[in-house]
Every structure is written in C-alpha cells, then in structure tokens.
Amino acid sequence: MKALFIGGSGTISAAIVRRLSEELNWEVYILNRGNRDLGDLKNVTQIIADINDEEDVLNKLGDMKFDVVSEFIGFTVDAVERDYRLFKDRTNQYIFISSASAYHKPASDYLITEGTTLANPHWEYSRNKIACEEFLMDKYRNEGFPVTIVRPSHTYDERSIPLGVHGKNGSFQVIKRMLEGKPVIIQGDGTSLWTLTFNKDFAVGFTALMGNPHAYGEAFQITGDETLSWNQIYQTIAEALGVELNAYHISSEYLSAVGDKYGFDFEGSLIGDKAVSVVFDNSKLKRIVPDMKTNIPFSEGVRIALDYVMSHEECQVEDPEFDSWCDRVIIALENAKLSV
C-alpha cells in the first residue's frame, strides 16, 4: 500500500508515518518543504516541494498514484481545492484533517458525536475547517471523490506539554513558571472537562481508516477515552515536575478581553474551544477500529513529554512577553479585589 502525506512531520502526522513505516510496512511519501529532519525511517521517501506550486508538485510526482493521500496542513478552502485538482485522479482515498473545534460553540450537549452540528462563531480557524469539509463532501456526493474527514481534538506528543493558556512560543514558559513557584493561569474555575490524546494512540485510529472503504464519505473524530478537568491536567503536570501547583483561575471572557491587544487569541482557543466541556463518543470509530483506546494515559504521556522537553534545549523556548503579561494580569486582579 502506498500513501502520500502533505506535511508529514507535525505532532499528529509524524506518529502516523512512523507507525505505517515501522509496523504496517506501507510505502510512504512525504511532501513538504524539508524544514524538519524526519529521522531514520524505512520505506519513507521525502518529496521536497511547496504544495502551493502545483506545476512543480506535478513534475515531481510524475505518474505516481496512491492508495491514500492525507492532508495535514490544509486550513482554507483554497488548499483543498488545490488538492482536488492535484489528486482527484491520483488517489483511491483522500483524508482531510479537520478539527473537533469545528463542533458547535456553545455546545448544546457535552457529549460530542460526529453528528453534532458544526458551527463556531468564535474562531476563524474552525470556520475555515468547516468550509473545507463542506467543499470536500460536496465533491464526494456529486462526483464520488473518495474523501474521509478526521476531526482530532487536543493531540500532543513528546515535544510539547498540553495546556489551556500559554503564549505564542508554546508551553515551556508555563512549565518554567511552575518550576519557579509562580502562579499559573487556568481558564475558568478549572472544572470544565477536556480530552487529551497522545499521538501514538491517535495513529492507531487513523491508520485503520486508511484504505478502509467503510470510511469513504464519512467523518470520524479520533480521541482517547480519558477525560480530565483542567485542574486535573495542571495538577498532573505539577506532580510530574515534583512541584506544588500555584493555580490562578481567571474567566475565559476576561482572558480574551485582556489578551487581544497583545495578540493572544483566547477568544478562539478558549471560548471557541478549550473553555467548553467536551466528552467524545467514539463509538462510530470503534465499530471499525476496535483496537482504538487509550494506551498512554496523560499521567504517563506528560512524563514522556517533560523528559523530552527538559532534555532538549530547542524545546525550551522562553516567552518573556507572555510571562510579563501573566504577572500584570494577576496583579491587576489582586488590586481589583482590594478596591471593592
């Protein structure tokens, strides 16, 4: 079996590529700009190209055809329209990575299925994903284009720590605040529910959809089974670090209002996503992928991630702007308490 991945080196796709090449013996091609080392993977060929340069891509693909083409870096309708032009006659299945953030906000029910309405007025990213889905499903219904939609929620790997509130440089500054005993901002009261999925677990569900005729014309959410509150998530991180959590709870609406002028899109990432309690009903996926389950719970996954981050300096990207912003916001709220 032969697969092409557009992207192929990100949090989700890297685990899928590794599983295909090392465990399932697929012939894998990765099309990207070559900015990240793929490591020593067997049966993996890298095609270095800008996917937006269609003429160059066509020249480099030659007459190749694929059992599966997977799009991991498509965020707008323009991207999937381009993919349709490039691959409509080159693949038996096209898998588009959408997002669970596309589900209706605010949610009408905490239990999310693939039939939950898609609508997110708070996040342009999510609305663009919805538009991509609509374009692709129209091509399936009217032209038989063999599309499968996959909606991940919060998937993480060893290179980053999943958090609710962080700056533009990722999660390390929050980890640093924890280690220094400084207060760490948690959105809301920390009791909303969230699902975290380690990328190796995600890869089990995804690879079982590849080449599976029961997946054509269908959408699937892929998440683990473990549901935690944000307080539990942050507490688990602190315990793995061996420190006491100094939690500071702030409403998502307030964070959105005071973060906007500094370029922190907390309306999208919080009100449009992480501030909402979600529990995923994955029975549709498990009917055709019975092996899909949580093999790496967060208590284990976070230790894997922390061990990696703390031993790789390139992952320790500090964010003084975000650090200073956290201090100012907390001081402002503490002063407001005194003035009432």
Rank of each mutant, 00 (worst) to 15 (best):
E244I: 12
I271F: 01
E218G: 03
P162K: 12
D265W: 11
L41S: 08
M292K: 14
A49E: 10
D109P: 00
F172Y: 15
D201H: 06
Y140M: 04
E81Q: 14
D201V: 06
I149L: 12
S160N: 11
I95H: 00
K261W: 02
T191R: 13
A102C: 14
D67Y: 05
A100K: 04
D319S: 07
A102D: 03
K284Y: 06
V80E: 03
T113E: 04
Y216L: 15
N59D: 13
T155H: 07
T294S: 03
Q187K: 08
F298T: 13
G205V: 08
S277R: 13
S269A: 06
I237T: 12
M178G: 06
C326E: 02
S311K: 13
H104W: 00
D273T: 02
E334L: 15
K65L: 04
L4P: 01
S171C: 11
G39C: 10
R18Q: 12
E55R: 10
E158F: 01
I12M: 11
H214P: 00
L270A: 10
A15K: 10
E27W: 09
Q46V: 13
F206I: 07
D78C: 02
W194H: 12
E239C: 05
G259D: 07
D56L: 14
D37M: 12
G34W: 11
V174N: 06
L41C: 09
E23Y: 04
N92C: 01
K286V: 04
N43S: 11
R328P: 00
K286W: 07
V57L: 12
P106D: 09
R90D: 00
R151S: 02
E218A: 08
E239A: 13
V69N: 10
K65N: 11
I288H: 02
F66N: 09
G34Q: 11
S256A: 15
T155M: 05
G115A: 11
E22T: 15
I296G: 00
K286S: 04
K176Q: 14
A208Y: 07
Q173W: 01
V279D: 01
K65E: 14
V317A: 07
P152I: 05
S252Q: 08
A14N: 12
E22G: 01
L333P: 00
P213V: 15
K42E: 11
N335C: 09
G8S: 08
N25E: 13
Y254P: 00
A257C: 00
N142C: 02
L38E: 13
L196H: 07
L20K: 07
A203G: 03
Y29P: 00
V204C: 02
K293H: 11
E334Y: 08
G164S: 14
R328W: 02
Q173K: 10
D89T: 09
G7V: 12
G272E: 06
L61Y: 12
P297K: 11
D78G: 04
V77I: 15
E134R: 15
Y216R: 14
V57K: 08
L338N: 09
A208D: 13
T116W: 04
I161H: 03
V309L: 12
E133S: 05
G268I: 12
E27A: 07
E124N: 06
L24K: 15
A219K: 08
P146Y: 05
G164I: 10
